[in-house]
Design a protein around this nucleic acid. Structure first.
Lengths: 345, 345
DNA sequence: ACCGTTCCTGTTAGCGTTATCGGGAAAGGG
DNA sequence: CCCTTTCCCGATAACGCTAACAGGAACGGT
């Protein structure tokens, strides 16, 4: 009984290790290890004795030692841009929730800038912490370059990446979302639809432009030159002024809800009513958008689903499989009060 | 030259280890270790030879082995509620940015529910990954209980915690923020200020209530019964209706920007103009709030500063110091267009 | 020439865990 | 009753790294 702790729950000098438990239970260290990892290979009675000793000493396995011999750490890395943004934050959150259910911990590397170097640096940081795999959330064209130059022995998947990259990808089908938004506006009777998109080098922005344009072209409508903002309400406001000044504009599909907020304000300031004079559709369905003025029609992305897919793709990859490489999640159109039929002059 | 890699950058069968580098450089393993950890204790020429070998073999230290012997992992844990919320997301982001500069990686454990058990479970998950310390972001009264029952040998600090807890705390001075908001409204000439606060068990909500109430009492103004929402625009909208229906309400201090958004809408729907009839102040300064209608006067929290403080408190704690235990960050009032002087009837 | 320092490097011994092999007891089959 | 199989458990040897000590060379001062 003269072990590190003597049963009273008194503070120990040094945390218990496998050997302490073994000694207290009167078995070998290997048996304790087996109780913890493959319990059914140990006789029930022995197992009970060992577990009692584990509790008695408040023993916790040392992950470093375990990792050293097994080669696995149970940690996944997530490399992501600014996790303050709604999309990346939601994705990260859902990845973590999913990973936890399978016993994985998540380490993060947030990027302030996005380019090949920063991605490599983020991946590298996680890698030198011996993560078992990495999920990269970098919805930027410039990320593609980083995704093509990854350490070959590290399992990696991406969220929101362009085509022609050598890793599996999970993402929302931006194109489909834009198609729905644009069709919705046309079906209300608008002659055509203007677009205020995100920055040129964002994957999501490109997908949304494509979808928007494809519908207009398929329907034989004029395709106005798209404007490009930077996702911020500020840029939505500035560019929204231009749209507001053009009386032929009756319907605008905006690349995200924040910019849409800016557009709503610009319209109001210009005396153009939404939706009577101009219809506006956003993208994302941030929690606030139902309380904009007017409540915003927008496209909802299911980040939970994206997180789940990304995780499972990574699991496959870690298992050495080279299966499915691209999983698209369908977005939903949420119709609120910022869209309506145009009023004929 | 018959080592694992033969210089051409050909794929290796197995990643290089310290011994491989040592062999290639013609030194002992210990010297390689020294080159990596205490470079100035190695002769320049030897160091160069070793570094060349490191690059040649693309050697990366094994963190598990290093951790096993040093006892340190270089990983910090962050236990946080829903990292989708603006505050926690910003805090997490800033903690990570700060930690990186000091060479630490951050692992996360997001909580969906907040209570003693979930906190313990989160801390435990990180702990069994051998983090060097933990930052808990749990701005809930119920978290206090969890904070009082932590493993004694684990360095922990909290962000946004109540009084009388046994760990260092970094947080925004909610009370001061509320004081500024309330004073601002009184200085505009309002007779008194109503308050729409957050949920009762949130630390931030309590602090804001206290600050608001203290100003009214100090000035001898009537103290209306505060309303309690749940931070969502929805609840702001619902409770905002009640305020809108009461003609004596001319100034409202709202617990966060999202609820303030709901209040703005409720006022508009009731035909009460902001700021002409009613002034509204929010809290947080989310990026959207400058584009609300009207642009929202609000209180800005400097999460970057909070993250920095939390990290440094944790560093101190890990170094065994028991220094400063509470660091408050001063918030700023951002005056926009949702506040003004009351119009006399 | 000698001795004490300082500088540089190597040897040895773990850190705490699991893989692997092997052996004894118990169980099953003839 | 013997032989095979199954079940449990233990001894040993890694895993890749660094702490601690030790020793040789070079250097300075006397």
């Amino acid at each position: 009984m003269a072990t590190a702790s003597d049963g009273g729950g008194r503070p120990r000098s040094r945390p218990a290790v496998l050997g302490d438990v073994a000694a207290l239970a009167g078995v070998s260290a290997m048996t304790v290890s087996r109780v913890l990892n493959t319990p059914d290979r140990v006789r029930a009675e022995t197992r009970a004795r060992v577990l009692a000793a584990v509790r008695e000493l408040d023993y916790w396995p040392n992950s470093a030692a375990r990792q050293l011999v097994t080669g696995r750490s149970g940690v996944l890395g997530v490399v992501s841009i600014d996790t303050t943004l709604y999309g990346p934050a939601s994705t990260l959150y859902c990845i973590e929730q999913t990973a936890r259910l399978s016993g994985y911990t998540v380490s993060i590397a947030s990027l302030s800038a996005l380019n090949r170097r920063s991605i490599e640096e983020g991946v590298h940081r996680l890698r030198s912490q011996s993560v078992d795999g990495v999920i990269i959330v970098a919805p930027h064209e410039s990320a593609a370059d980083g995704l093509r130059h990854l350490p070959p022995d590290l399992p990696v998947v991406a969220v929101d990446a362009g085509e022609h990259i050598p890793v599996p990808v999970a993402m929302v089908d931006q194109r489909a979302g834009a198609v729905r938004a644009t069709r919705h506006l046309l079906s209300l009777g608008h002659e055509t639809v203007w677009h205020l998109g995100g920055p040129a080098d964002w994957i999501d922005a490109s997908g949304r432009i494509e979808g928007w344009k494809s519908v207009l072209e398929a329907e034989g409508r004029p395709v106005p030159e798209p404007l490009r903002g930077d996702w911020s309400p500020r840029s939505g406001h500035q560019l929204g002024r231009r749209l507001a000044a053009d009386p032929s504009v009756t319907a605008v599909f905006v690349g995200n809800d924040q910019m849409a907020l800016g557009v709503l304000r610009a319209m109001r300031e210009a005396g153009r009513r939404v939706p009577e004079d101009v219809s506006v559709v956003g993208f994302d369905d941030v929690p606030e958008s139902a309380y904009f003025w007017p409540p915003l029609t927008t496209v909802r992305q299911d980040f939970r689903e994206v997180g789940r897919h990304a995780f499972h793709l990574l699991l496959n990859r870690m298992a050495g499989e080279d299966g499915e490489t691209r999983r698209l999640v369908e977005p939903d159109l949420v119709v609120r009060e910022s869209t309506g039929s145009p009023k004929r002059a």
